[in-house]
């Protein structure tokens, strides 16, 4: 039997590889957006701290901007440093 494929459509899914399912700040799933975005993925990325905790970038930046003195990780209270892979 001989088959001829006339056309095909590729489908792919994606997810973040994070050590948790939800953002500890907004409690939304990492696969969805922070409360202020509507498009998940590159438009609402995740960022990691050197402490290994991970948040929506918009959530953690908002929190850090509100901290006048020590900018700490909301989870472990170590001073926050972005982990640049």
């Amino acid at each position: 039997m001989k088959l001829t494929i006339k056309s095909w459509t590729g489908v792919a899914t994606w997810r973040w590889i994070a050590n948790d399912e939800n953002c500890g700040i907004c409690r939304m799933s990492f696969e969805s957006t922070c409360p202020e975005c509507s498009l998940p993925g590159d438009d609402c990325p995740l960022v990691w701290g050197v402490c290994s905790h991970c948040f929506h970038m918009h959530c953690i930046v908002k929190w850090l901007n509100l901290q006048t003195m020590n900018k700490q990780c909301p989870m472990c209270r170590q001073s926050w440093k972005f982990n640049i892979h």
Binding site: M57, H58, L66
Partner: peptide
């Protein structure tokens, strides 16, 4: 800290100080 945002088409982090 700004460095990591540079790759994303120089987009500024979406944040604001809550007054």
């Amino acid at each position: 800290m700004l460095k990591i945002f540079k790759s994303k088409k120089d987009k500024l982090p979406k944040s604001e100080i809550i007054t």
